[in-house]
Lab assay of single mutants.
Amino acid sequence: MTEYKLVVVGAGGVGKSALTIQLIQNHFVDEYDPTIEDSYRKQVVIDGETCLLDILDTAGQEEYSAMRDQYMRTGEGFLCVFAINNTKSFEDIHHYREQIKRVKDSEDVPMVLVGNKCDLPSRTVDTKQAQDLARSYGIPFIETSAKTRQGVDDAFYTLVREIRKHKEKMSKDGKKKKKKSKTKCVIM
């Protein structure tokens, strides 16, 4: 069974824990209790493949930012979460993405942009803004509501699919490099 290491990042209060708990335990946590770091595991079937999701729910508070490099190193894919009623959390996505790329030393890291709290009427981040940002990053965008469960499975499952595509691409690139290195030079 394939294991996928997913990391949920975003500013404090955007609903990272609520999304994760909704996926794992099928219930909505409405009281806000700032996370330092929590880890969850769940076995699911995605596109006919049974897999184990190892999900790291991270601290959004700035005082825990020193811990970010460590979990970013171990993560295979990242859910970059903002709240649709919090423009600052949307603007912060850029910083999370840049930090992930720096730590992973790669421009090509599996990510999904997630606009959470889409059940709320007080939207300050337009869907088109988020779609445009995701398009500019070359990553999928999904709106979710941890409260109603809308888009929750889709967000995590899409990230797994992005990781699969990335692994497939990397193995193809690896095979191309191996083929090239088999060419021999004969000096007579």
Rank of each mutant, 00 (worst) to 15 (best):
E76A: 12
F82W: 07
N86R: 03
V81Q: 05
V109K: 03
P121E: 15
E107C: 15
V81R: 00
I100S: 02
S106Y: 10
K117T: 12
F82N: 03
M72N: 06
P121R: 09
V112Q: 01
Y71Q: 14
E107F: 09
Y64R: 04
L79R: 00
N86I: 02
A83T: 12
D119L: 03
D108I: 05
E63S: 06
N86M: 03
S89L: 02
D126T: 09
S122D: 14
D105A: 08
E63K: 06
L79Y: 02
C80N: 02
S122K: 09
E76Y: 13
R68Y: 02
Y71G: 15
I100H: 02
F82K: 00
R102F: 06
R73Q: 12
G75V: 09
Q70V: 05
V114W: 00
R97V: 15
M72H: 07
D108H: 10
G75H: 09
G77V: 10
C118W: 09
G75S: 08
G75D: 03
D126H: 10
L120Q: 14
Q70S: 14
Y64T: 03
M67E: 05
R73T: 11
R68H: 08
V109S: 03
K117N: 12
N116M: 15
F82H: 10
C118Y: 09
S106G: 14
V114T: 02
Y71W: 12
G77Q: 00
Y71F: 08
A83D: 15
Q99D: 04
K101V: 07
S106H: 12
V103G: 08
Y64L: 05
R102H: 06
S65F: 05
E107G: 10
E76N: 08
K88E: 13
M111D: 00
K101H: 05
P110F: 02
K88A: 13
M72V: 04
F90V: 13
L113P: 00
R123T: 14
P121N: 12
K88R: 08
E98L: 02
A83V: 02
R68M: 04
D119C: 05
S65Q: 07
I100W: 04
M72A: 11
L79P: 01
C118M: 11
F78V: 05
S65M: 09
L113R: 00
V81P: 03
R73E: 14
K88G: 10
G75Q: 05
G75T: 08
R68S: 12
L79K: 01
S65C: 06
S106P: 05
D119I: 01
C80E: 02
Y96A: 04
T74A: 13
E107M: 12
E76M: 13
A66Q: 07
E63P: 04
E107K: 06
V112N: 00
V125Q: 13
A83N: 15
E107Q: 07
R123W: 08
Y64A: 03
V81C: 09
R123M: 12
F82R: 00
S65V: 07
G77K: 00
A83S: 14
T74E: 14
V125Y: 10
D119A: 05
S106W: 14
E98S: 05
V103L: 12
S65Y: 07
Q70I: 04
L113V: 11
K101T: 11
A66P: 08
C118H: 07
D119T: 04
G77Y: 05
V114F: 02
F90D: 02
V125R: 11
Y64I: 02
I84F: 14
G115L: 13
D69P: 08
D119R: 03
C118T: 09
F82V: 13
V81I: 07
M111N: 00
D108W: 04
C80A: 04
E98G: 03
M72Q: 07
V81D: 00
M111Q: 00
L120E: 13
V103R: 05
G77I: 07
D105C: 09
Y64W: 08
S89A: 13
S65H: 06
V112C: 03
R102D: 03
M72D: 09
C80S: 03
L79M: 06
G115F: 14
V112T: 02
Y64D: 04
D108C: 07
L79G: 00
F82T: 15
A66C: 13
D108T: 04
K104L: 09
M72K: 07
R68N: 05
P121F: 12
R73K: 09
R123F: 08
T124S: 12
I100K: 01
E76P: 01
P121A: 13
V114C: 06
D119K: 03
G77W: 02
C118V: 11
D69L: 02
Y64C: 04
D126C: 10
V109E: 01
V112A: 02
R73V: 08
R73M: 10
M67G: 07
L113W: 08
V109A: 04
C80F: 15
L120G: 12
P121T: 12
T74P: 05
V103C: 14
M67P: 06
F78N: 01
C118K: 07
G75M: 05
K104R: 15
V125P: 11
M111C: 05
S106V: 11
A83H: 07
Y64K: 03
F82Q: 03
V125C: 11
Q70A: 11
E76F: 07
D126W: 07
D119Y: 02
F82L: 09
P110V: 03
I84S: 15
